[in-house]
């Protein structure tokens, strides 16, 4: 669209809502942000499962079924992508000094990834342990 600004006429392009299809990097950014939706739904399903445990043994329905498993596979993809981007990006942002020197970011990123692996292993173990 053209418009007057001061005494020169300028042309201003507007961003189409489809801007994120212009570059792969934009696209993956939108995937990263969109991951919030499937993860939110998955957590609400988990909350529903907890709620149904209040119905007594006969009324309890654990999450299951083909649809749920397929959805979980999709959610797992988004979840892993979220973990990877969030831990590596936040690792690069956290900044502190050790003896007057900026601490480099790669050990922070690695420490976060290792922490992720340990925590995940613990959760898997705990979910198994409570089943016995």
């Amino acid at each position: 669209m053209a418009e007057e600004s001061g005494n020169t006429r300028v042309y201003r392009k507007t961003m189409p809502p489809s801007w994120w299809t212009r570059k792969a990097h934009y696209f993956w950014y939108v995937v990263r942000e969109f991951s919030a939706l499937p993860l939110a739904i998955w957590l609400l399903l988990l909350l529903g499962e907890i709620r149904s445990a209040a119905n007594g043994p006969a009324g309890y329905h654990p999450l299951g079924g083909t649809g749920f498993v397929i959805f979980s596979v999709i959610a797992l993809f988004f979840s892993l992508y979220h973990s990877y981007t969030f831990l590596s990006l936040s690792g690069a942002i956290i900044h502190f000094k050790v003896i007057d020197r900026q601490f480099p970011s790669w050990p922070i990123v690695w420490a976060q990834m290792i922490m992720w692996a340990i925590v995940s292993a613990f959760i898997i173990w705990a979910l198994w342990w409570f089943s016995t």
């Binding site: 418009e3 600004s5 020169t8 300028v10 042309y11 201003r12 392009k13 961003m15």
Partner: peptide, 8 residues
């Protein structure tokens, strides 16, 4: 020309 700026 650079995106996001008015073109003169």
């Amino acid at each position: 020309p650079l995106n996001n700026f008015p073109i003169i």
